[in-house]
Each structure stands twice: as structure tokens, then as C-alpha cells.
Write a protein that binds this DNA or RNA. Structure first.
Lengths: 228, 228
DNA sequence: AGAATATGATAGTAATACTATTATATTTGT
DNA sequence: ACAAATATAATAGTATTACTATCATATTCT
């Protein structure tokens, strides 16, 4: 993915951080190495002490950027969804045919991720795998309603609503556009997870992609106005 | 739900516990109160010390039944899936029409849960809510492959495969029966969660149920052989 | 050069997730 | 009925986590 615009910054809710990690070298190294370590150890085994040690700094310096690792996860996943949203808008903007538009949207949101050179300290491939393995943990908490009110899930919600609008454009009479849209995004993460860990529970493999499955699912649910 | 058979015991992988909690009064009180506390506090804030205190016992006694809270979660969720599997088999067994059978299966697996008097120490309504909020955490771990090998997710997998077979019976040519089946089960939990915490991301509310949405989703994906 | 700011080092606290040991009940076998 | 076995309770202790606080040092900004 190449950007026509240089120096794009993905906007993340400022409450996720104490000090913007993009504003300093140390901040960027925290992000870069946190992604590597969460990817490697999993969120449960990841600690600020460990990243601190890895970047030749220490715990207290990491705490100056993020309140706790939950907020860091919110930061990373919000960044990811913001990055995907950018690609979604960019890719689908010029498409006038509503079916083609929705098809492209599903593709962008469910296909495998590749590196984006514009953000050198962020490994989008690893981040995508973090989202697959850890995103649910960011909202499956007792604090979800409070954090939702504070806007921590705005980008994710906006992304889903964008697809809702595309679904409605294809079939204004379809009764479940919100559920379908949320199912595509969540279902995509889930199918990638199953492919890796529970292959007997998915048809996705080298030959069948989550994108194919979900595109089929969506277009069979919608009345496209075709006769074929 | 009433059982024709008395004294049914839901079979759970014995590796989930050190000592079978069904085998003693203390064990049952641990289960009963753990369900209440996980439901109330959420899995992260739940500890063995807290249940111990609640039942007038202590930490060390709880540890004699479960290695750790992760294993307890595996026990509780396996029990839940086993209980659902029983209802699934019982309900669908006598139905010969494959479409009706699948329709019933989706209903059993996605409808709201009500109390089952056969298991007095287990509150199935609370347990269902625990599954909605916490089940993902049982497999979104670095240990998932190991634990899968040891059979901790057998019942869940069997449940999905049962629905896979029903999907194939309706439409043998449908290319994604495994993905569709896993999407229904996971999607159901997700829609219930959204309904509660992110109502703008779902169409499910007092009037529309996850069952309706998912039934529509499945039957529009399948070629039922009808002309209508 | 001095002030402000960022980072690093160290220490300390409360809670968690256990393990180990010993004491005290309760149950069971003869 | 009594000894032996088993289950439970009570207490203590350890390593790690998830922080907070303080102070020293380095960097940069004016």
C-alpha cells in the first residue's frame, strides 16, 4: 500500500496515552518493541518491565508513555483500525458501483496484511496478528461501557458503520446490516485464528481465504437486484 | 428444559480439574460461587482467594480442586458446551427433515438460555453470560495449541462439527460448512455482547434476536433446493 | 549558563498466583 | 468403637506483577 499523501499520521484517541509515543524516539521504540514482544509472548506474558529491559530503558520510562498495558493495547489496536480505515476509504472512494464498492471493502477488511513502509516503527503484519489474538481482550472487560463512553472504540465502530452504509447501498431492504457488518469484521479475525489453531473448524486454508468465504456470505444474504 | 433421563452428568475433560468438583459438597460450592463471582467481577478480577473467602473456606482448598483459574474457566465453559450439546442432540434427534433440523439446531445454539433445574449448583443463565464475556479468553492464549492437543476444546469442536453435518445435509455443495458453523456459534456470542455494550453495531434488540439474524444468514447462504 | 524537560536508576507497596507445612475435622474400614 | 485414611482449614512464605514515588543525570531550549 502506497500513500499519495506523505506524512500521514493515524489519529488515535489521546486518552490511550500519557505522552504521545510518536513524539519521541523512545516512544517509537516502545511501540516497535511492544509489538514485537506482545506478538512473541502474548498479551498476558507481556510486561512493561520486559519491554523496558529490551529497549535498554526501564519500566518507569514506559509508564511515562502509557498508564498500563491495557491502554497500550487500546492504542495499538486503535492505530490498526485507523490504518485499515484509511485504506478502506482510499480504496473504495472512487468506486461508484455499490456492489463493487462493497466487494472492495470486504476485501480490504478481510485480506491478509502486508507491510506499509510509511510507518517504519510499526510492523503491520505483526500488528494484524496481535489484533487477531488479542483484540477481543480489549473490550471483553468489566470496564467496557465506561471506556466506550470515553471513546476508546470510536475508530472500530466507525469502520463497521462505513461498511453498514455500503451494505445498505447494495440492498436497502436487508434487515440486519449492522449485524452483518460486525460479523464480517469479527468473523474475519476468527477465521484467521481458526485457520492457525483449529483447522478442523474452518474451510479456510491455502486455497480458500476468509475473504472468499465472507464475500460469499455477504452477497448471498443481500438481494442485489440481479436476476442471475 | 426437562430431561427424560434423571441424574445426567455433563462429561468434562478430567484434566481441567485436580479433584472432581461434582464429587463433594465443597466442590459444588466452589463451582456455584465461582460462577457468581466471575459473573459479577469479570474473569480478570476474580481470584481463588476471593471465592475461598466467600464460601467460608480458603485459597488452598480451592487449589485442591483446580490448578488455576484458567483451568476453572476451561471446566466451566466445557460444561456449558456439553450442556448445550446435550440439548442440541436431544432436540434435533427426532427431526428427519434436514432443513427443519438445521433450523432447530441454530435455535438451540443461539437462543437465550433459561435455568435448568437438573443442575442445582449451576446457574446456566449466568454461565451463558460468562461464556459470552469470557470464552474467547480461554483459547486466545499462547498455550492454545498445547491445550487443544490435550483435548480441552473437544466438546466445543464436536458441537461445531455436529452443525457442520447438518449444514451439509441441507446443501452438500455449499463450500464453507465449517466456517459457517463456527461463524454461527462465535457470531451468536458476539451479537449478544454487542447488543449489551455496542448497540450501534448490531440490529439485535428486543425485537430482533441473534437467532433470527443467524437463521437468515445461514439459509440465505445455502441452496435449499427450493424454488421459492 | 541556567532552566526546563526527558530519561534512568532505585526503592517501595499491595495484590496476585501460587507452594508448602501443619493442624484439625470427618469419614471409612475392621 | 477405634485407628487409619482422607478432606479441609489455617498459616506462612515466595516470586512476580503492576504499579507509585523519589532522586539523579542527561539533553535541549532560551
Amino acid at each position: 500500500m502506497k500513500h499519495l499523501l506523505q506524512n500521514i499520521k493515524i489519529g488515535v484517541n489521546e486518552k490511550t496515552f500519557v505522552k504521545d509515543p510518536e513524539s519521541s524516539d523512545l516512544g517509537k521504540r516502545i511501540i516497535e518493541n511492544s509489538i514485537m514482544m506482545i506478538h512473541e509472548l502474548g498479551f498476558e506474558h507481556f510486561t512493561f518491565k520486559k519491554v523496558g529491559a529490551k529497549i535498554g530503558s526501564n519500566e518507569s520510562s514506559v509508564y511515562r508513555y502509557f498508564e498500563n498495558k491495557h491502554k497500550l493495547l487500546l492504542y495499538l489496536t486503535s492505530w490498526y483500525w485507523g490504518w485499515l480505515e484509511y485504506q478502506l476509504v482510499f480504496t473504495t472512494n472512487s468506486i461508484s458501483d455499490s456492489q463493487e464498492k462493497l466487494k472492495s471493502a470486504i476485501k480490504v477488511l478481510t485480506q491478509t496484511v502486508s507491510l506499509d513502509a510509511s510507518f517504519s516503527h510499526i510492523n503491520e503484519v505483526m500488528l494484524n496478528e496481535i489484533v487477531i489474538n488479542e483484540y477481543s481482550k480489549s473490550y471483553l472487560t468489566k470496564e467496557v461501557d465506561e471506556e466506550n463512553k470515553e471513546g476508546y472504540f470510536e475508530i472500530y465502530k466507525r469502520l463497521i458503520i462505513r461498511m453498514v452504509e455500503m451494505i445498505i447501498a447494495v440492498d436497502p431492504d436487508y434487515p440486519y446490516p449492522h449485524s452483518l457488518s460486525s460479523t464480517v469484521l469479527e468473523g474475519s479475525l476468527h477465521q484467521y485464528f481458526l485457520k492457525e489453531h483449529f483447522p478442523s473448524l474452518t474451510d479456510c486454508d491455502q486455497h480458500i481465504s476468509p475473504t472468499q468465504y465472507l464475500t460469499h456470505l455477504v452477497f448471498n444474504s443481500l438481494n442485489t437486484g440481479d436476476n442471475g
